[in-house]
């Protein structure tokens, strides 16, 4: 994405932080992005806060699977490994 012709502005920079963090900016845009951070404390703070946000979101907990559902899957796994697969339409 090479939309920035001149120096990057703060208003543009705040839209590019995830692209920057993901390494998705073109080398030229990356250079402009970093050059702006050299001269702008407010944008440094914005980038830091977005990073902090990502860290904080990462501490939310994930749900785990109910034991019953897990047992059922485990049974399917066991069956598959202990019985050779039946050819299609084979009688029981």
């Amino acid at each position: 994405m090479s939309v920035l012709i001149d120096d990057i502005t703060c208003r543009e920079l705040v839209e590019l932080v995830t692209d920057y963090l993901d390494g998705a900016l073109s080398p030229a845009d990356r250079e402009r992005f970093e050059a702006h951070l050299q001269i702008c404390d407010a944008c440094v703070m914005y980038v830091d806060q977005l990073r902090s946000t990502v860290t904080a979101v990462g501490t939310l907990s994930e749900e785990t699977l109910e034991p019953a559902a897990r047992d059922e899957l485990l049974r399917a796994f066991r069956d598959w490994h202990h019985k050779p697969p039946k050819p299609p339409n084979a009688p029981d």
Binding site: T53, A56, V57
Partner: peptide
Amino acid sequence: YHWAAPPRDWPEERLLAGETLQVIGGAL
């Protein structure tokens, strides 16, 4: 297009507090 109302410092020590995580959950 530069900041008129720039972001201000956050109380970093509160970032991972339980109440903050609730705010994040609500935002999601």
